[in-house]
C-alpha cells in the first residue's frame, strides 16, 4: 500500500514537472514563433501573391503573369539584369573557389600557432570589425585617387582610376572581393579548429604526420560540419548578397558592375511601389535557380565528407546515440 502511494506520488510529481516544462516551453517559444509566422511565413506568402499582381497608378491591383514574362525577357534582353546575374555568379565563385580554401589554410596556420599567427589573426579580423561603407570609401580613395598618382610617380603616365575606368572596374572589384572576404569565414573556421581535442592532433603528430597530413586526415574531417554549412549557405546567398556593390555604386558611382543584391536594393529604393511585383517575381525565379544550385551542391558536399571513409565512423556515432537514448529510457522507466 505504502509502495503504491509512493508510486502515485512519484507519478504526480512527474506530471506536475511535465506541465511546468510545457508552460515554460510555451511562454518562451510564443514570441519567436509569432514573429516567425508574421515575418517569415506571412511575408513569403505575400511575396508569392505579389509576384502575380500588377499595380496601376492609383495602386489598385489586378492578377497577372506578366511579371514573370518581364523577368525572363529581362534575363535575355536587358543588359543590366543579365550583368547583375552574371556578376553575382562570378563573385560567388571567387569567394567559394579561391577565398574559402585560402581562408581554411590561414585558419589552420593560426590554429597550429605558427610564427606571427597572432598578428595575422588580428589583421584578418579588421575588415569584419570595420564597416562595409568605410572599407568601400577607403578602397575607392586608394583605387581612384591613389592609383593615378602612383602611376604618375612610377611611370610618368596619366591614367584613370581603377574604378573610374570601365575596362578595369570589374577586375578591381574582384580583387577587392578576394582580399576582403577572407575574414568572414575565418572566425568560424578558427573556432571550429580550436574545438578539436588537442590529444587527437598530438597523437597524429607523434605518429609522424606532417602538417599537410594532419590537416587532411585529422583537422578537415573533424571540422567538416562547419565547412559543409559554409559551402551550402554561401550558395544560398548568391543572389541575396550584394557583395558590397551598392556601397561602390553610392560611393564611387560604379554603375556598370552590379549584382542581383545591389540591383534589388536600387530598384526597391529608387523605382517606387509599382515595381514591387516585378521584384517579387524575379525573386521567385531566383529561388528556383538557387535551389537547382544548392541541392546538388549539398549532396556533393555530404558525399565528400571525409568522416564517411573512416571505418563507418558516422554509423558508429549514430549507433552510440541510439544506445545512449535506449539506456536513458531504461533509467527513466526504472
Amino acid at each position: 500500500m505504502e509502495r503504491k502511494m509512493k508510486q502515485l506520488h512519484k507519478g504526480g510529481a512527474t506530471r506536475s514537472r511535465e506541465r511546468s516544462a510545457l508552460r515554460f516551453y510555451c511562454v518562451m517559444m510564443a514570441f519567436p514563433i509569432l514573429q516567425f509566422c508574421v515575418m517569415w511565413i506571412g511575408v513569403n506568402f505575400n511575396s508569392i501573391l505579389l509576384a502575380f499582381k500588377e499595380y496601376d497608378a492609383s495602386l489598385n491591383f489586378t492578377w497577372t503573369m506578366d511579371n514573370f514574362k518581364g523577368v525572363f525577357e529581362g534575363l535575355v534582353k536587358d543588359a543590366t539584369v543579365r550583368d547583375a546575374f552574371k556578376n553575382s555568379i562570378i563573385f560567388w565563385l571567387v569567394t567559394t573557389i579561391i577565398t574559402f580554401p585560402t581562408s581554411l589554410g590561414i585558419s589552420y596556420y593560426i590554429y597550429r600557432n605558427y610564427k606571427f599567427s597572432r598578428f595575422i589573426k588580428t589583421i584578418l579580423f579588421l575588415p569584419r570589425m570595420i564597416s562595409g561603407p568605410v572599407t568601400a570609401i577607403i578602397i575607392y580613395q586608394l583605387m581612384d585617387r591613389g592609383y593615378p598618382v602612383m602611376m604618375k610617380l612610377l611611370f610618368d603616365k596619366d591614367c584613370l582610376g581603377l574604378l573610374a575606368n570601365s575596362a578595369t572596374q570589374m577586375m578591381a572589384l574582384v580583387i577587392y572581393q578576394l582580399f576582403f572576404s577572407l575574414a568572414g569565414n575565418f572566425i568560424f573556421l578558427s573556432s571550429a579548429m580550436s574545438g578539436i581535442d588537442e590529444s587527437i592532433s598530438e597523437a597524429a603528430r607523434v605518429d609522424g604526420a606532417n602538417a599537410w597530413q594532419e590537416f587532411i586526415h585529422v583537422t578537415l574531417p573533424l571540422i567538416w560540419p562547419t565547412v559543409s554549412i559554409f559551402l551550402v549557405t554561401s550558395a544560398v546567398s548568391i543572389f541575396t548578397n550584394d557583395y558590397g556593390m551598392y556601397s561602390f555604386y553610392k560611393v564611387a558611382g560604379v554603375t556598370a558592375v552590379n549584382t542581383v543584391g545591389s540591383y534589388f536594393t536600387i530598384g526597391l529604393t529608387e523605382w517606387g511601389t509599382r515595381r514591387y511585383p516585378f521584384f517579387a517575381a524575379f525573386g521567385l525565379v531566383l529561388t528556383a535557380i538557387t535551389a537547382l544550385i544548392v541541392f546538388p551542391l549539398r549532396a556533393y558536399v555530404n558525399s565528400k565528407n571525409p568522416m564517411n571513409d573512416t571505418d563507418g565512423a558516422i554509423a558508429a556515432k549514430k549507433r552510440m546515440r541510439k544506445e545512449a537514448r535506449r539506456n536513458a529510457k531504461i533509467t527513466e522507466n526504472a
Partner: peptide
Amino acid sequence: FIEAMIYVVMIVPIIGNTASTIQM
C-alpha cells in the same frame, strides 16, 4: 519540427521578399 524547418529555411530561402516585407 522547428529544427527541421530551420534547416530547410536555411537551405532554401525565398529570395526577393524585401518588397513584401516593406508591405507587411
